[in-house]
């Protein structure tokens, strides 16, 4: 599914009790869909598409927000949480920690919706779980 198609469909779609708002961004020649689940615009999901996969990324926090001396411990914790966390995995992009999921480009709206809702819930849960490692 193309991103603009996904954007249109998401706006009329509700799944698992969640609603979506999405914005199409193309600033640098790369299409990005910014999806907000249930009005949580603090943790938007960014959806991009390559030839092979659809990537859904949610930025969690920047490196600077980690409590001093605790980064190694946090990294270890995140690696351990990776497997039990459904459908998503932790990652680092530049100096930002993120959580992401990758799907086949053949995925249906239902599959994408499920991925996005799960990613959104995971990102909130993850922040909650690791907030002890973060500064204000």
């Amino acid at each position: 599914m193309e991103l603009n198609e996904l954007s249109l469909k998401l706006s009329q779609y509700e799944t698992e009790g969640a609603s979506f708002e999405s914005f199409f961004i193309n600033n640098v020649g790369q299409d990005v869909l910014q999806v907000i689940v249930d009005g949580n615009d603090e943790l938007p999901i960014f959806v991009t598409r390559t030839e092979e996969q659809i990537l859904c990324i949610c930025y969690l926090f920047s490196e600077q927000e980690i409590t001093a001396q605790k980064q190694a411990e946090l990294n270890d914790t995140l690696l351990r949480l990776n497997v039990p966390m459904p459908l998503s995995a932790f990652a680092k992009i530049d100096n930002k920690y993120a959580i992401f999921g990758a799907l086949s480009t053949n995925s249906t709206l239902e599959q994408l919706g499920h991925e996005i809702v799960t990613l959104s819930a995971n990102s909130i849960d993850a922040l909650d779980a690791i907030s002890d490692y973060l500064t204000e």
């Binding site: 640098v28 990005v32 920047s62 992009i93």
Partner: peptide, 21 residues
Amino acid sequence: KATMAVNDTMASGDSAMTSAK
């Protein structure tokens, strides 16, 4: 590229100012 696009978006919004907490 997506990161660049996202960074551009975030820089113009409040989210850049807000900490994760």
